[in-house]
Design a protein around this nucleic acid. Structure first.
Lengths: 198, 198
DNA sequence: TAACTCGACATACCGTTGGTATGTGAAAGG
DNA sequence: CCTTTCACATACCAACGGTATGTCGAGTTA
């Protein structure tokens, strides 16, 4: 594995990616508070100088990791939704994709548990909004426009559903099969179904 | 304010209460990670020796603080629910009480943001279960028994609703009036209403 | 191509933090 | 009274996040 080869931009990008990768691994495995910079830079086979050259500090590295996680989840949700043309199926498949994606252990810990505490809920919410929350709000809005959902403010409803799915993902990841995905999904889809007009 | 008076048990209890009080204040104001033991013991006018005599460490103090917060919220929910005899009104008034109680700044930060990250989601959930979550589950169960809700597993539904309300409380506390309690509450009560059979 | 610049780190160091080991003086018990 | 016990206070430590400075090679210029 050549490490100090290639152009400078390549080396820079590779170091940054390695820091994010190892940071993500360690943050996911032990939690933000239990991971030291020493462990991260050792795993990445660099020094603290490199970390502070790329990021403003520990929290900034975590933010970069969280952004990566959020983007993956958002892409998964968008991909699932775009596979359908019917707006209702777009909503349900998007929600289901969110559930399965955010049940992964690293997503769970980084995005759902440590994220708000480390970055503050406000900034966490901004990242969530940019990556996947707006999908939900837009899906609900188009359902209201199509008359499938009763006319109502979509923003509060989107927040409620988002919180419900976050909690569901936490339960799923924790119970580890004891409470199956299908049980939670049937409860969530029943909830969504009950919202339909008529 | 006499500090070193009274029996030993009284002194002990007073010191413990003071530590919890000041810890709660500082944790709520600055967040768990930004608060040092030095600040806590200074505010409580004791030393670290006292803190470690009463608690196993920083996280254990936080746990005691969180337990107090949870119990207050739980008592508020139970009180609101017990004020009604109709099971549906018990549910709705309990949910509304939860919303208003957990919108308070210290409850929000300690219980909803830092709690899961500091203690781990599993332990956090256990405390939540003991204090208020079981109220929700029991209310839903009796509504199913009464035929007001369609027969369904209540545990997953309770989790979804709990998550929805947590997120709603975070939004409420953050927007600070911009997004009013009534907006969120109307969305939540609409959601609950849509669950009713017929 | 030789001299120079600059960026991508490495090294050495610092203040603060959570945690521990030990000391102490007053209240409880006989 | 004397002893024990307990509720802390004091002194200390290792580890942590963060910073200031040094270094060396790739890129640029003459």
């Amino acid at each position: 594995m050549p490490k100090d080869t290639g152009t400078r931009a390549e080396q820079r990008a590779r170091t940054r990616r390695t820091l994010i990768r190892q940071g993500r691994r360690l943050f996911a495995e032990h939690g933000y508070g239990q991971v030291g910079l020493a462990g991260i830079v050792a795993a990445a086979e660099v020094t603290k100088g490199a970390l502070y050259h790329h990021f403003d500090g520990k929290a900034a590295l975590f933010r970069a990791v969280l952004e990566e996680v959020q983007q993956e989840v958002g892409a998964s949700v968008a991909g699932a939704a775009d596979a359908h043309t019917d707006p209702w199926e777009q909503l349900t498949s998007g929600c289901r994709a969110f559930l399965t994606a955010s049940t992964a252990p690293d997503v769970r810990r980084i995005m759902l548990v440590d994220g708000p505490a480390v970055l503050g809920w406000r900034e966490w919410r901004a990242l969530d909004e940019a990556s996947s929350a707006h999908h939900l709000r837009e899906a609900l809005a188009s359902l209201v426009d199509a008359g499938i959902l009763a006319p109502q403010p979509v923003a509060p409803l989107a927040n409620l559903l988002s919180g419900a799915m976050n909690e569901a993902a936490l339960w799923l990841a924790d119970s580890g099969g004891e409470q199956d995905l299908e049980d939670v999904w049937s409860a969530l889809s029943r909830l969504l179904e009950s919202l339909r007009d008529n």
